[in-house]
Amino acid sequence: MKTWFITGISSGFGREMASQLLERGDRVAGTVRRAGSADDLREKYGDQFWLGHLDVTDQPKVREVVDAAFAELGRIDVVVSNAGYGLFGAAEEVSDEQVRHQIDTNLLGSIQTVRAALPHLRAQGGGRLIQLSSVAGLAAFPGASIYHASKWGVEGFMEALAGEVAPFGIGVTLVEPGGARTEFAGGSLRGGTPMSAYDNTPAAFVRGLQDGSIEIPGDPAEYAARVIGSAEVEPAPLRVVLGEDSYAGVTAALRARLAQLEA
């Protein structure tokens, strides 16, 4: 039995992971922004489930909640930084406030969650850090420039961090899923204000994610199981790419980058 700390368990990958872990008998400390969004888990699993209320853009609160989870549960084996959302639209189409909130949530929220957990993981002699990234962390597509900025930032931070914390027995894994049938393409996806100048341009492609006209292929339950399984692999895999679309997008981007470099 392991003990897990997961941010953003009210929906999506976070919810799927928490449900699978609790069902198999692990302990889960989960965080939500909306009060009541995980009450069913608390009612069903009792003391096996620890619930914290957290908006990861509130940096002092991040440390407070992480500290409380370690204090009340003792050892936490795996910390999963999962909270985040997608902001789509051309760079001109999103507002300054949307840009700031995207970076505050996806990038700074992830960084601060990890920074808050590190003293505890070092003190207990090791553990595992899992960061939910995306195919958008290694490949870039028109219409998602700000989302890419947040995910590419997370990738750089976690890859460098892996070398920093390896001497303390802390493993680091970046998870890069492609499209999955979660709330990401529904309630959690946000967009800018469409500009007619971008109609019929590559940046307009992502509008189909908001109106539902783009089919989402991946199975979130299968993806969550793969993420959970990665915590058993030693040494920790630095990257776990999930989905045929993610693999295709990442390999095409890396090959193109290498060709550009060689040229």
Rank of each mutant, 00 (worst) to 15 (best):
E159C: 09
V175E: 14
M195E: 12
T7K: 02
A166N: 11
Q260C: 04
A263Y: 06
V32M: 10
P60I: 08
R257A: 15
A144L: 13
V240C: 08
T105V: 07
R128H: 15
R34C: 01
F168A: 13
Y85S: 09
D26N: 10
V94M: 03
A68C: 03
Q112V: 05
R75I: 02
Q102S: 12
D67F: 01
E262S: 11
G89W: 00
L121R: 01
A139R: 02
P60A: 11
D219R: 09
L258E: 15
D67Y: 01
M17K: 04
Y198K: 02
Y223C: 03
A68R: 12
I214S: 07
Q124W: 00
F184K: 08
G212T: 04
V241Q: 04
G179E: 07
Q124D: 00
A162Q: 14
A29E: 02
R34Q: 11
A136F: 09
A221S: 15
F70Y: 14
Q102L: 06
V241N: 04
A83R: 00
R207L: 07
R75A: 14
L22Q: 09
S110G: 13
W50Y: 15
P202S: 07
Q124C: 00
D199F: 05
F141G: 02
R24P: 05
F13E: 04
R34L: 00
V250R: 12
E43S: 12
Y223K: 00
I170Q: 11
F13L: 15
Q260N: 13
G178C: 05
R181I: 06
V62R: 00
A197L: 14
E72R: 06
E43I: 00
L261D: 14
Y45G: 03
D47S: 14
G153I: 11
S19W: 11
S11Q: 11
V99G: 00
K61A: 15
P119N: 09
S133P: 05
R75L: 06
A224N: 05
G12Y: 00
L87K: 07
E215P: 04
I76F: 02
V99W: 05
V165T: 12
M158I: 09
G229K: 04
G109Y: 00
S145P: 05
E222F: 06
G249Y: 01
P60N: 09
E93C: 08
G156A: 14
G14F: 10
G171L: 08
F168I: 05
E155M: 10
I111F: 12
S196K: 13
H101I: 02
D199P: 09
S134V: 01
D58C: 03
P235W: 08
